[in-house]
Design a binder for these strands. Structure first.
Lengths: 149, 149
DNA sequence: TTCGGTGCAAAAGTTTTGCACTAGC
DNA sequence: GCTAGTGCAAAACTTTTGCACCGAA
């Protein structure tokens, strides 16, 4: 089970700081949304957020959700997620982005997480060579897993 | 400029073979669509295909396009593409998937392609360790490029 | 007190469906 | 000739917008 390396509340603080930097207001709706997004496992869509919040007794409108998602993306806490050919916009928080790569089986849909020290080193070399400062990344290999190969 | 390693017509043949395997019909519409998709550079959406085909005098309806795209994805020639937080479904063909990775600058949007022998080796090792046979991949690093860092 | 933010209702888009007709096999 | 596939029109959904009201700073 993947555990976030950074606590949710510290990420909420980061978001509040980001809002202040941008001179945007820290509203109850935005706080509820960022907490829900950070607590989410895997990918989800706009409506999932509304349903989960409603289950907690918090009512946030669709327009507000759609207006808040881009802020979460801009602030770096969220990213669109598209492993398969969904027709809708799915999202995923970025808490697990570091050091977790994915092997995706095109036959059974199984997703295997992995880490690799050699991969780490190769990427550091690439960054140095191109003068690129990497912040986040997405590494996905598509193919056949050990059960389907 | 990136050149496909495999010719378009051989990929069209592959698609025809795939259709036959699935006992699906090889229609004019499907052939026109697969050719257009394979000839496309970068990301595009359903309507782009219709417009380009119409410019060539071929008329293919939206429903047919939407019904064909999943076939192209299933057959491995196409994949959804989501570099940024677009609200619509964009696609990209998989011709250039091999040996081209991306550095994406979050500040200026610049996309730098790179290859790395060490990365190659690291990925081979990962596959071997997990009994995974990789067919395609997507490797994207998000961060600041040499001009924005 | 002042604007930016929210919710509602309606609009705008995109993707899907039902059905009659067409064309691949 | 039989079916799967196509196009049209309409429906279904997701996402956006206009506007009046509310609440954070």
């Amino acid at each position: 089970m993947r555990e976030p390396t950074v606590s949710i509340e510290s990420q909420v603080e980061q978001f509040i700081g980001w809002l202040r930097t941008k001179k945007l207001k820290v509203t109850q709706e935005r706080l509820a949304l960022v907490r829900e997004v950070l607590a989410s496992k895997g990918h989800f869509e706009a409506e999932d957020l509304q349903i989960r919040l409603r289950a907690q007794g918090r009512r946030v409108s669709k327009p507000t959700i759609y207006r808040t998602l881009p802020l979460l993306i801009e602030s770096g806490l969220l990213r669109p997620s598209f492993l398969t050919g969904e027709r809708q916009t799915y999202y995923e928080n970025t808490l697990g982005d570091d050091k977790h790569e994915h092997l995706i089986c095109v036959a059974c849909g199984r997703i295997i997480e992995f880490t690799s020290e050699r991969l780490e080193e190769a990427l550091v070399e690439v960054g140095r060579k191109h003068g690129f400062i990497a912040q986040k990344r997405r590494i996905e290999l598509f193919g056949l897993c050990e059960y389907c190969g």
